[in-house]
Design a protein around this nucleic acid. Structure first.
Lengths: 287, 287
DNA sequence: GGTGATTTGTGCGTATGTATT
DNA sequence: TAATACATACGCACAAATCAC
């Protein structure tokens, strides 16, 4: 197939990308199978190598392909793991119906085990001056010191997610949260022991591309965004902690069970699915 | 400043990108201010234009910069709008404490108005064969027909989010959901009128890069992921609808108020904040 | 309204480096 | 070691969009 650029047409590399996308979606290559090498694509389409690379760049940045130097270019496959970020108290799958928050790590590890995978973690405890992101939510003074408890999570040894919990130093002072080790039973148990029973939380969710440090840690190539959950935990008398968790979005999905599910099981849906296939939306309205 | 490549160093374009990132983070240019033009950067750093473009590509794909043909390259600014995806019934800001779900559009429009912005929408109603994404969650047969009600939302005329609600045809048949118009009071009211009172839902959240159609509709350049919310609504007797909402992640944040917040206001936090600044994570563990 | 200068976008060619097989 | 395949880097030319005049 030869691509020649006519007037009014999209650029070559974009049409090449579109054609490759079509062939990919058509199942011409399976996950893990290499695409034709760049020189082969040059010949197939009769374009310069630069143009091939521009086209493949597009698909890499969409998260469809991954390039490996010296080997080839491959379809990316998406084994997605669900993580239950919240279960309503009425949810029957919840062990203790009275509490809405469980030991996060234990629950996460159970989910991983259920999927036949092994969750491990590294732990760091630091005392830092909080940014306004944190102080605003904790309702403390800007620049005030907070206890930062960081959990680096690995799935089968692969970097998976980063959780950073921030506590006001005054609050954490007399608790197990000052120890440079994970609290058995979870941080929320240490909080509860100190009289701070978390009764609710506010989650703020966003997605963005990783910065270089994050990309390196997550081993996330181009086209892989982060899913960021910022949870502020509340007692009856106010906020007590802010937890920011970052997930590599191509491997993770967050689940919230809300309200009453009427005694039904949570839906069991295959994990590998991707929601896509937008129909024709028409042109966007002019601004 | 001249960048010369030594052995064992990172490639020129990556170090150039890192230096530009440093200057950007250092506040050398403000949001909306153009960066030096490519030829200027060639001279400043003593590299080929290609190298400059590779470096800028990196930052564009991180969502830091945006290029405008014929004008220049600019810092992207991030006016983020919060959207309350869920409020716990005990949340005092909820108008009617008995129901956990409000008319989504009305609530959304109120939030927008509170931020001094205007939410508009287009509406489409289609009957389509559902994908397994949908049928699995609705517990109907694969390929069964569903009513697809699509809401295209614009903020101040700018493409903002796409909401697609799917209902089993049998369920929707005798309701206002078959009409090719938005239901006053919201779809959930039409459902309730037909005896299907939604008592809970399960939200599945993920993020990914947009496909070409989505990127075009959202006018999302490289480096802008989508935040996707897939909500399955339940009555006491089972699921009745699946709603997929796609947000341009650089402009939106989803908020979930969960559990009891003890009569406290939802936290009022400036919208423009970005959570970033990962500390040193150390090297990831080997696989 | 048109013209030219500026700036990014597209496309080609070539050469060499680096990782994998 | 050699071949293969992607990565980096240089150069050049022209197209297309924007803006100042």
């Amino acid at each position: 197939m030869n691509i020649s650029r006519g007037p009014g047409q999209a650029p070559k590399y974009q049409r090449l990308a579109a054609d490759l996308r079509r062939r990919i979606m058509g199942g011409e290559w399976q996950g893990g199978t290499p695409l034709p090498v760049e020189s082969e694509l040059e010949n197939q389409y009769g374009v310069a190598r630069n143009t091939v690379r521009l086209a493949v760049d597009v698909l890499v940045n969409e998260g469809l392909l991954v390039r490996v130097q010296g080997k080839g270019t491959y379809l990316k496959d998406h084994p997605v793991l669900d993580h239950h970020a919240y279960r309503a108290p009425s949810d029957p799958e919840l062990g203790s119906p009275g509490t809405s928050l469980r030991s996060a790590f234990a629950a996460y590890a159970e989910e991983a085990a259920a999927a036949g995978r092994k969750l491990t973690s590294d732990f760091q405890m630091l005392i830092v001056r909080a940014t306004t992101d944190i102080t605003d939510r904790l309702r403390i003074e800007p620049g005030e010191a907070v206890v930062l408890r960081r959990m680096l999570r690995y799935m089968d040894g692969e970097p998976w997610s980063v959780e950073e919990s921030h506590y006001p130093v005054g609050l954490a002072a007399s608790t197990a949260l000052m120890a440079p080790d994970p609290v058995v039973g979870g941080d929320e148990m240490a909080l509860a022991d100190a009289g701070y029973l978390e009764t609710g939380c506010v989650d703020e969710l966003c997605a963005r591309m990783p910065n270089p440090e994050e990309a390196q840690w997550f081993q996330a190539g181009p086209g892989v965004p982060l899913l960021v959950q910022l949870r502020t935990g509340y007692t009856e008398s106010g906020p007590v902690r802010v937890t920011e968790t970052r997930y590599s979005a191509d491997r993770n999905r967050l689940i919230y069970s809300l309200g009453s599910l009427g005694g039904l099981d949570a839906p069991s849906v295959r994990s590998a699915e991707v929601f896509s296939e937008i129909g024709d939306l028409g042109a966007p309205a002019e601004i």
